[in-house]
Design a protein around this nucleic acid. Structure first.
Length: 686
DNA sequence: ATATGCCTC
């Protein structure tokens, strides 16, 4: 208390035991938390931040994990009155973070969550008229900007975790730069981990930088002497070496995906079984996002107890990137880094997004290593050479905006009133080809007119939290009397694959799925599965019995409910008529996905029409080699596959999307010839 | 004749 008084004499007159936000006495818990807060590295930097923020519209704050910036800066800004009666917003890339940080800050400020401090994420708004500080996902703030492009209700906007460069954060950057010109009362803080701050400094030209130390213990780095030929075997070897010879402490291994993680878990368990009681017990735990929550919880269970020789046990967690940013596990002392991860990339010429196993960046490597130093000094074993770390890894991973299909982004920018996309100030401008593709797609979908202006339909599309192709299906569904079916379908298509196929129950799983399968197409199979779930009162038990992932199905239901609310708000009637329903469903799908059509050029040989890509039907499909098909997704694994496929009649293409099937722009294929015949036939009929 | 990193509206 003494310390506080001497720092701000003005406070002497205020009764320090009263919370100015609630006019109530501070609780004991508040005092306890206050002591903890004063120990955070950010605490001593607050006066300096104050000075900077007073003088500048934008401040960039660089602080490592554990500095306390996410909890302390927003409430400090609020206490100091920087928002001038308006709200303070703090964005987060993930929902869980927005929620949990808001909860923590409400406790620290001794207020009720949802009152002065709240949060806003998809499916849940926990904020109200009294809210002064709101944590929200970056996507949510972007949504708000679509109805209020100057974000007028906010006096201060804090972009946290800016170094992650999510799509939404990158768009907000460009938008805020324009709004800062128009609104001199608005202030912005960009908060980031070390990397990329120079990029932000270059972007906000006059913004000062404040650096705050983190709270990490040193992590000793080890590299391999020569490049590893088999990093999975190297992983097993390194785990066993640590387990046999190193001091106690848990191990975290970074690999690329589910399959690899499960099989490496098996190998390690097998190796560990060969050891006797002269080493401790080893518990090997897989971690990836599609793992059921109960299994994910295992990472927080304590390590195995001491064995009969009194040697303590150890946990070894094999994880995807989920443990790099989304999940923190305490007690990790050893990290093993394969140097690889699966990354999304977009090929505008082929119009496809795909996942590729690629080398990580140096920034990621540092982040992974840091996971070993959270509770005490740690060690990180990199399964690559120091030379390759220095010369072959890139400094930081390309931002998402350079690796994505931008149809949705361009639609959002149009709604935000960005007239000239070429002049929009992206931190990293996407390639002209990607922008062109996005504009072209939106034009074909009739979201933009021939002048590139938004159409009424485009406005409707932007209202849905979906890709424009999927919004199109909902908007056009009354025409084909399949509203309920499209809601089911869209909810399922935006969720992960719900069909479970456990290794030891493959036949049973296939049999369960066969009850939903429709020969006309996998889209209808998805609709049937969802309808079954709905008919059974959304029971998780029914899901498990039918080899459907209960969590995925519940998520789909949540999305569907939100879409129904939107449909009602936009006055789009939900009409369903069982007559001719299969044909109507597939025609409706073509209205949005006419760009994703294949023709069977020869037996067993499918080709996409415009890109002339040779593709194969994914083995999970239930359709019987139709001549023509519409597909939902292109996946590049051992082969080029198309997944979720429905058979179609080529005449529907000409009828529904004549704007796209101007065949003069198509390469020569048998498919093109057949379509031309259909068009010629139509013309002679007239 | 088989798999899909992490997220967000």
């Amino acid at each position: 208390m003494k310390r506080l008084r001497s720092r701000s004499p003005a406070r002497k007159t205020i009764n320090q035991s009263i919370n100015p936000f609630t006019n109530k006495q501070y609780s004991n818990k508040y005092r306890k938390l206050r002591e903890e807060r004063e120990k955070l590295p950010i605490f001593d930097a607050l006066p300096q931040f104050d000075k900077m923020f007073n003088k500048n519209q934008v401040v960039i704050l660089q602080g490592e994990t554990g500095s306390g910036k996410t909890t302390q800066i927003p409430q400090y800004i609020l206490e100091k009155g920087y928002a001038k009666g308006k709200l303070v917003a703090c964005t987060q890339p993930r929902r869980v973070a927005a929620m949990s940080v808001a909860k923590r800050v409400a406790e620290e400020m001794d207020v009720e969550l949802g009152q002065q401090v709240g949060y806003s994420i998809r499916f849940e708004e926990c904020a109200g008229p009294n809210t002064l500080l709101k944590y929200l996902t970056d996507g949510m703030l972007l949504r708000e900007a679509m109805t209020d492009p100057t974000l007028d209700k906010y006096g201060v906007i804090i972009l946290d975790e800016a170094h992650e460069r999510t799509l939404s954060t990158d768009i907000l950057f460009g938008l805020l730069k324009e709004v800062l010109q128009k609104r001199k009362d608005l202030k912005v803080v960009v908060m980031s981990a070390t990397l990329d701050t120079e990029k932000f400094l270059g972007y906000f030209k006059n913004a000062p930088l404040l650096t705050v130390p983190g709270r990490l213990y040193p992590v000793e780095l080890f590299y391999t002497e020569f490049p590893e030929e088999d990093y999975l075997w190297a992983t097993v070897r390194t785990v066993m070496q640590i387990h046999a010879f190193e001091e106690p402490g848990d191990i975290l291994v970074f690999l690329t995906g589910e399959e690899e993680i499960e099989s490496t878990c098996d190998s390690i368990r097998k190796e560990a079984a060969r050891y006797k009681d002269n080493v401790g017990k080893l518990s090997v735990i897989p971690l990836y996002s599609s793992l059921p929550p109960a299994m994910q919880q295992k990472i927080f269970e304590p390590a195995p107890e001491v064995n009969s020789n009194g040697i303590p046990g150890r946990k070894c967690i094999l994880s995807t990137n989920i443990a790099e940013t989304s999940l923190t596990i305490d007690g990790i002392v050893f990290v093993i880094d394969s140097g690889l991860s699966k990354q999304k990339c977009y090929n505008p010429r082929m119009r496809v997004e795909s996942l590729l196993v690629s080398p990580i960046s140096r920034a990621s490597a540092k982040q992974r290593a840091g996971r070993a130093g959270r509770t005490r000094p740690g060690k990180c074993y990199r399964l690559y050479t120091e030379k390759s770390y220095k010369r072959e890894l890139v400094e930081s991973t390309a931002p998402e905006i350079l690796r994505s299909n931008l149809a949705n982004v361009v639609l959002q920018l149009k709604i935000l009133g960005i007239e000239n996309l070429v002049d929009f100030d992206f931190i990293d401008p996407p390639s002209p080809e990607t922008m062109m593709r996005a504009l072209e797609t939106l034009h074909y979908l009739r979201a933009l007119d021939d002048e590139g202006e938004l159409t009424e339909e485009g406005r409707l599309m932007s209202e849905f939290p979906l890709d424009p192709e999927l919004s199109k299906l909902l908007i056009i569904s009354p025409k084909y009397s399949c509203g309920e079916e499209m809601l089911n379908l869209v909810a399922m298509l935006t969720s992960p694959n719900p069909f479970l196929r456990p290794r030891d129950h493959e036949d049973a799983a296939d049999k369960a799925k066969s009850k939903f399968v429709n020969k006309d197409g996998d889209h209808i199979t998805l609709i049937n599965a969802y309808q079954g779930f709905e008919n059974e009162g959304r029971q998780p038990y029914w899901c498990s019995k039918n080899f459907l992932n209960p969590r995925t199905m519940r998520g789909a239901a949540e999305i569907r409910d939100q879409l129904v609310v939107k449909m009602n708000k936009l006055d789009i009637p939900i009409i369903s008529n069982k007559h001719n329903i299969s044909e109507n469903i597939r025609k409706c799908i073509i209205s949005g996905f006419f760009m994703q059509v294949v023709h069977k050029e020869k037996a067993n040989f499918y080709m996409t029409l415009k890109e002339k890509q040779h593709v194969a039907l994914h083995p999970s499909t239930g359709v019987m080699r139709p001549d023509w098909a519409v597909y939902h997704e292109y996946v590049l694994t051992s082969k080029k596959y198309i997944r979720i496929v429905s058979s179609i009649n080529p005449e529907w293409l000409i009828e529904i999307a004549p704007q796209y099937f101007d065949l003069s722009h198509f390469p020569d294929t048998n498919g093109k010839k057949l379509l031309q015949e259909i068009i010629d036939g139509k013309n002679t009929q007239k």
